[in-house]
Amino acid sequence: MEVRTIKVFTTVDNINLHTQVVDMSMTYGQQFGPTYLDGADVTKIKPHNSHEGKTFYVLPNDDTLRVEAFEYYHTTDPSFLGRYMSALNHTKKWKYPQVNGLTSIKWADNNCYLATALLTLQQIELKFNPPALQDAYYRARAGEAANFCALILAYCNKTVGELGDVRETMSYLFQHANLDSCKRVLNVVCKTCGQQQTTLKGVEAVMYMGTLSYEQFKKGVQIPCTCGKQATKYLVQQESPFVMMSAPPAQYELKHGTFTCASEYTGNYQCGHYKHITSKETLYCIDGALLTKSSEYKGPITDVFYKENSYTTTIK
């Protein structure tokens, strides 16, 4: 009895394709271990004539594949690729409408935090270190965002349907971005203890939790000093293409032309909904596939993004 075979390709990165001759009487799992086709788990399936010449994702289970996976995804987590594939199996079914010149995501599976993050990423200057993220990001900007969303979920250790947080998501993504040249110098002034300067680099240099107003941050924000008295913390120097200011959701007025974009969060910790506000020729609110415009805006804002380049204080 002759062994019926077909020729397929296996890959971990969709760049390096490895030619395989597979036995049609055995499952993919018996031949390769966990195997995925377009995100779908085909591990328990036997090869079919229609699979001839198709590319299958496999887990990096030998040295060659491990090197290829690390170079593309910059992670050695053995569960990463499987999590990416199972997320992709959902995100490829989502709709990605162009809204006001940006790629958004039609609401499904509690994905409003991903839509808000995706919209924000198209408006701030950011370059990702893992080629996987950078490639998928370019495709997302062009309207094909399924891979990018699935990668975000995998890097953030999230599953489809789980509630997510924009600030946490951005923080994970910033860790995989090139923020080497970003720098922030802060000064804390206390009447009792004097003053202390701190220099922050990388992710810490672009994120701040405690106030939404970048102007206020430049002037000074009140913080408790270690001595128990009130101290003032203010920005001395900022070198970065953008800054992200966050605070627990509270009524906040966004003035046209003073910011790049913002995240609105309605609801409580267990259950809520994100919308995205962007400042173009007027203010726009993007909620999944829905767009509304207004000249002014007041609502429960939790993150505001500002364009920056270089700032030095005039406070002496």
Score class of each variant (00 low, 15 high):
Pro300Asn: 15
Gln196Asn: 15
His276Ile: 00
Ser240Val: 03
Val206Thr: 02
Tyr96Ile: 04
Gly272Arg: 14
Ser79Asp: 11
Val203Phe: 12
Asp135Leu: 08
Ile315Gly: 13
Glu2Ser: 14
Gln195Asp: 13
Phe9Trp: 05
Lys280Gly: 10
Ala231Val: 05
Leu290Ala: 10
Tyr252Ala: 11
Gly220Lys: 03
Gly101Arg: 01
Lys201Val: 04
Lys7Gly: 05
Lys191Glu: 08
Leu133Val: 05
His51Glu: 10
Val160Tyr: 04
Lys183Ile: 11
Ala146Arg: 03
Asp77Val: 02
Thr266His: 08
Ser213Phe: 00
Pro241Asn: 12
Lys275Cys: 06
Lys219Pro: 01
Thr314Gly: 12
Asp13Ala: 03
Gly164Lys: 03
Ile45Gly: 07
Leu163Ala: 15
Ser171Ala: 13
Ala146Cys: 06
Val58Glu: 00
Phe174Gln: 01
Glu296Leu: 13
Gln31Asp: 07
Lys275Ser: 05
Leu81Arg: 06
Asn129Ser: 09
Val22Cys: 11
Glu296Val: 14
Val67Pro: 06
Ser50Asp: 15
Leu290Met: 15
His18Asn: 14
Thr232Phe: 06
Gln122Arg: 01
Leu65Arg: 05
Tyr172Met: 14
Leu118Trp: 02
Asn187Ile: 10
Ser295Pro: 15
Ala140Asn: 03
His273Ala: 09
Gly257Leu: 05
Phe56Leu: 07
Arg66Thr: 11
Phe70Ile: 09
Val8Gln: 03
Met85Ser: 02
Lys316Asp: 12
Lys46Phe: 14
Thr43Lys: 08
Gly272Lys: 07
Ala262Tyr: 03
Leu118Arg: 00
Glu264Asp: 07
Lys201Gln: 08
Met24Gly: 15
Gln122Lys: 00
Lys191Met: 13
Met170Ile: 09
Thr19Ser: 15
Gln216Lys: 11
Asn111Met: 04
Ser279Leu: 02
Arg184Asn: 08
Ile105Asp: 15
Thr159Ala: 04
Ala115Asn: 09
Met26Val: 15
Glu253Asp: 08
Arg184Ile: 14
Gln20Trp: 04
Ala69Glu: 11
Met24Phe: 11
Leu88Ser: 01
Ala117Pro: 01
Arg184Gly: 10
Lys307Gly: 11
Phe305Asn: 04
Lys7Trp: 11
Lys219Phe: 09
Arg167Phe: 14
Gly228Pro: 00
Arg167Ala: 03
Leu151Val: 03
Phe128Gln: 00
Gln237Val: 12
Asn110Trp: 04
Ile315His: 09
Gly220Cys: 02
Cys193Leu: 04
Glu253His: 13
Trp107Gln: 14
Leu17Ser: 07
Asp41Thr: 15
Leu37Arg: 10
Ala132His: 08
Thr116Tyr: 03
Tyr252Gly: 00
Leu133Phe: 01
His18Tyr: 09
Asn89Thr: 09
Val221His: 07
Met244Glu: 07
Trp107Phe: 07
Lys293Val: 11
Thr75Phe: 01
Ala40Val: 12
Ile301Gln: 05
Gly39Asp: 06
Lys233Asp: 04
Pro130Gly: 01
Gln197Thr: 13
Asp109Phe: 02
Lys298Val: 14
Ala69Cys: 09
Leu81Asn: 00
Gln230Ser: 15
Glu253Gly: 06
Ala136Thr: 05
Thr282Cys: 11
Gly33Arg: 00
Tyr36Pro: 00
Thr5Trp: 15
Val188His: 13
Tyr208Phe: 14
Ser50Gly: 11
Met209Lys: 09
Gln175His: 12
Gly143Pro: 02
Thr211Arg: 06
Cys149Lys: 02
Tyr265Ala: 07
Phe305Met: 06
Tyr269Phe: 14
Tyr269Asn: 13
Gln30Pro: 06
Lys255Trp: 07
Val166Pro: 03
Thr55Tyr: 04
Lys316Ile: 12
Thr5Asn: 11
Lys316Leu: 13
Asn129Pro: 01
Leu153Ile: 10
Thr27Ser: 14
Pro248Ile: 15
Leu283Glu: 13
Glu204Tyr: 05
Thr10Arg: 11
Gly220Val: 03
Leu153Asn: 03
Glu168Val: 08
Val203Arg: 13
Leu59Met: 15
Phe128Val: 00
Trp94Ile: 00
Thr313Trp: 10
Lys7Val: 09
